[in-house]
Design a protein around this nucleic acid. Sequence first.
DNA 1: ATTGGCACTCGACTGCCATGAGTGCTAACA
DNA 2: TGTTAGCACTCATGGCAGTCGAGTGCCAAT
Lengths: 352, 352
Amino acid sequence: MTDNSSGKETVVSERAQHFLKALIERYIREGQPVGSRTLAKDTGLDLSPATIRNVMADLEELGLVSSPHTSAGRIPTITGYRMFLDSLLTVQDLQQTEVERIRNELLMGGEEKTALLSSASRLLSGVTRMAGVVTLPRRDKTTFRQIEFLPLSERRVLAILVTDAGEVHNRILNTHREFKRAELEQASNFLTRFFAGEEMDRVRKRLLEEMNDARERLDQIMAQALSMAEEVVNASESKEDCVIAGQTNLMEFKELSGLEQLRKLFDAFTEKREILHLLDQFQTADGVQIFIGEESGYQLLNGCSLVTAPYQVDENIVGVLGVIGPTRMHYERVIPVVDVTAKILSAALKKH
Amino acid sequence: MTDNSSGKETVVSERAQHFLKALIERYIREGQPVGSRTLAKDTGLDLSPATIRNVMADLEELGLVSSPHTSAGRIPTITGYRMFLDSLLTVQDLQQTEVERIRNELLMGGEEKTALLSSASRLLSGVTRMAGVVTLPRRDKTTFRQIEFLPLSERRVLAILVTDAGEVHNRILNTHREFKRAELEQASNFLTRFFAGEEMDRVRKRLLEEMNDARERLDQIMAQALSMAEEVVNASESKEDCVIAGQTNLMEFKELSGLEQLRKLFDAFTEKREILHLLDQFQTADGVQIFIGEESGYQLLNGCSLVTAPYQVDENIVGVLGVIGPTRMHYERVIPVVDVTAKILSAALKKH
DNA sequence: ATTGGCACTCGACTGCCATGAGTGCTAACA
DNA sequence: TGTTAGCACTCATGGCAGTCGAGTGCCAAT
C-alpha cells in the first residue's frame, strides 16, 4: 500500500491537483468550506462524493487543505494556496477592449507623473474592487537636475529643487542676512552645474563633505549656499512614498470583518510605512508576484494577499504597484489587471 | 390640570432639565438606555424611581427623550441633545498643563503651515480618540504675493506661485518656443508687481481680462506671460482642501458599527468634498460650534456629531478645525480641546 | 480503484421558558 | 399637590433542548 501505482507519498497525484484546483476555485467563489458532494458535481469527471473524500483525506494529510471542524467541508491552507498559485492557476488574458478601457482611465487625469500614479492606484482599486496601491519612485534613485533660489522678502529665500523625474520640491528658508538676487542666482548656477545628474543620495553625501571643506576655506558665500541646498535636499526626502486607494472596499469582505483586524489594516494604510517596506521587496523581481499575508511575519496582513508588479521608466524598475485584498480573491482576473496596468503605466511614463 | 403651578405645557421645568442633563450625561458615559432607577441614584436629590418616571413621561412627550422599546430606559433624541448642548452643558476649562501639552505637540512637527495643520488634525484625533479634521485656508481668500518663471530645458518652464500665506505652488509648463532667462525674469517682475496683494480669485479674473486685452494689442510677450501665469494659477486651485486624521478611531464606537454606515463615512473622508462643504458653513461663526449629524440632510453623518471652531491668522478667519465623532461623545471634554487647539493654532500662524 | 451505506459530529436554527430591567397606571400618603 | 409604593405588563436576553442538514470517516461490496 505504501508504494502506489503512480504517486509516491509526498507527491500530489495529477488527479489530486485537479481536485485541489477545483476546490480552491470554488472556495474563492463561494467563500465557504466546500464539501465532497459539491466538489463532485463541480469537476468534470463524474465521481461519487465518497471518492472525493478519499482524495481530500490525502490532501489534508499533505497540509494542502483543512477542515475548520469535523463536519464542515474543506478550505485551502496557505500552502494549498501557494501550490495553486504556483502551478495550478490558469489566467486568461484580458480582452483587448478592457485593456483599452484601462488605458483610457489611466490617462484620463492628465499625463503628469503624480497624477498618473494616483490614477493607477484608483484604477486598480476600482477594477478589482479591492485596495489599490502604488509606490512612488524612491527619492534616492532619482537624480538631481537643478536647484534655484528666489528672494521672497528680506531674509526669506525660496529654494526650489527639481529632479529629473520632473518633480519639484520647494522650501522656504529663513536666512541670517539678506541676499541679493544676483548672489542667489550665482549660487543656483554653481550648485546646479556642480551636482547635475547625480543621484540624490550621493548629492546629499557630497553636500556634507563640501560643507566641511568650505568651512575650512572660510568661504562664506559658498558655505551658505551649500547649507541652503542641504536644507531643501533634506526636506525633499520625507514625503509621501505610497499611494493607496479604495481601502474601504476591503470592508466588504467578511473574512476581514473582524473590526480589530480591519482597524489595524486601515491604520497601516494611513501610516503606509510598513506597506511600503513590504512592497519594496518586490522592487526587484519582474513580472507579477503574489504574496500571501501569512507568509511574512506581518500579522496585520493575515487573511490578505498582495498581487504586485513592478513598473519601469526607460527600462529601469522604479516602483511597484498592485492590489491588496483577501487571500480568497479572484486571482485569474486580478493578475492580468495588475500586469496590464503596470505595463501601461510604464509606457505612459516613458513618453514623459 | 392643563395649567400647572409653575410650568406651562411647552416649557421644560427646572427640575426636568436637571434630569435631562443627568440622563444624557449618563447615557454618554454608558451608551445604554438609562432607566428610572439608575437615574434616581445618579442625581443628587433622592427621589424614588416612580417620580422620575413621571418626569420622563413629560420629557418624552416634549420629544426630548425616547425609549427604543417599551421596557427599556430612555435615550436622548436629537432635540434632547440640542437642548443639552445649548443650555445644559457645563464645560470645565482645561488644566494649564494640558494646554501646554497641546501646544507642544502642535508645534512639534515644525512651524511650517501645512505641517501645523496636519499636526493639528492628528493632535485632535489623538487627544479625543476620534477623527480630527482641519480645513485648509480657501485659495481665493489668500492673496497673491509673487510669481516666478525658471527655465528648465528648452521649451520647459517651471512656474512658481507664492501666496502670502507662504504656500508655494509650482507647475511645469511646456511652451511653444524657448525663453531666455532674462525674458522670464522680466515677465515675473511684471506680473508680480501687477498682481501683488490681490486675492487669488480676483487675480484669476483679471488675468483673463488682460489676456483679451493683450491679444488685441498683439502684444506677444505679454500674452504668453499671462497665459503661463493663468496656467499656474489655475493649477494651484485643485489641491487638497482638508486634512483628516484618525478615522479609524471611529471604528471603536459600537453605535457607528454598521459596516454600511462606517463604509460610507470612510468614503466621505477620502473624498473629503462633502465634509469640506459642511465645514465651510462654520467658517463664519466664531467660537465652538456643535453640529449634530442628523440635523442636516447628510445621512452619512447619522449618529455623528461635529465639534468645530474656526481658526484665524491676523484676525481673519481662514479655516475651521474640529472633531467628528459619535453623537454620544464627551462634549465637556471635547469642546475645550477643540477651542484651545484653535486658539493655539491661530497664535502659531500669526508668528509666521 | 470506486462506490454505496451507515453512524457520527457539529453548526445553525427554532421554540420555550425564566429572569430581570423597566414602564404606565392607580391609589395612598404627607 | 407633589411624591411614593405597588402592581400588572412588556420586552430583551440567555440558557436549554430538539431538529435539521451538510459533511465526514470507515467498511464492505463491486
